[in-house]
């Protein structure tokens, strides 16, 4: 019995070892959204293209993507062509022009093309806070029943799309 006591440290360390092994290689930066499993929060935002006030009633019937972007954000430039390609393949995108100004944002869409079915202006970033956004670009997947099922931080490209697309149904 007394002998067994001396194995306690080894046992405790083994458990730690397994824990570390499980955590290795995981992306410690990855942050799941707190909104997963919930509907899109209420909003009253002005449309960038038509100047009318829109609410969640006006959101398309799922499944669709909500993409936060801004003309100030370098990664959004890189991401844009890929979004255009997605839109062309029939994916519905809702854009949120996040912490941005109207004129350059409109120019951006004219120059680079508009992949979005609707674009809402979130000049102060309040809707961004409601969605738990920490920067741009960020993309949420909303499924057929209007529930948020996935969030991706950073640009969308071929690689991240492979992960996202599974949720889009």
């Amino acid at each position: 019995m007394r002998k067994l006591l001396f194995f306690i440290p080894l046992a405790a360390f083994s458990i730690l070892g397994v824990l570390f092994f499980l955590q290795l290689g995981k992306d410690s930066q990855y942050m799941p959204s707190a909104l997963i499993g919930k509907t899109v929060p209420d909003f009253n935002l002005v449309s960038l293209l038509s100047d009318e006030i829109l609410t969640q009633e006006d959101l398309p019937n799922g499944p669709f993507l909500i993409n936060f972007w801004g003309t100030w954000c370098p990664a959004c430039h890189i991401e844009h062509p890929y979004l255009m390609a997605l839109a062309q393949s029939g994916i519905t995108l809702v854009g949120i022009d996040y912490k941005d100004e109207k004129a350059p944002a409109q120019r951006w869409l004219v120059e680079k093309g508009n992949p979005y079915q609707m674009v809402l202006m979130d000049e102060m970033g309040r809707f961004g806070i409601d969605m738990g956004v920490t920067g741009a670009p960020e993309t949420f997947v909303v499924n057929r029943s209007g529930i948020i099922v996935y969030r991706h931080q950073g640009e969308i490209n071929e690689q991240s799309w492979q992960q996202l697309k599974g949720y889009l149904k």
């Binding site: 942050m31 799941p32 959204s33 707190a34 806070i129 969605m131 738990g132």
Partner: peptide, 8 residues
């Protein structure tokens, strides 16, 4: 804050 950004 927790509702938007989680317990984190």
């Amino acid at each position: 804050m927790v509702a938007r950004y989680g317990e984190f």
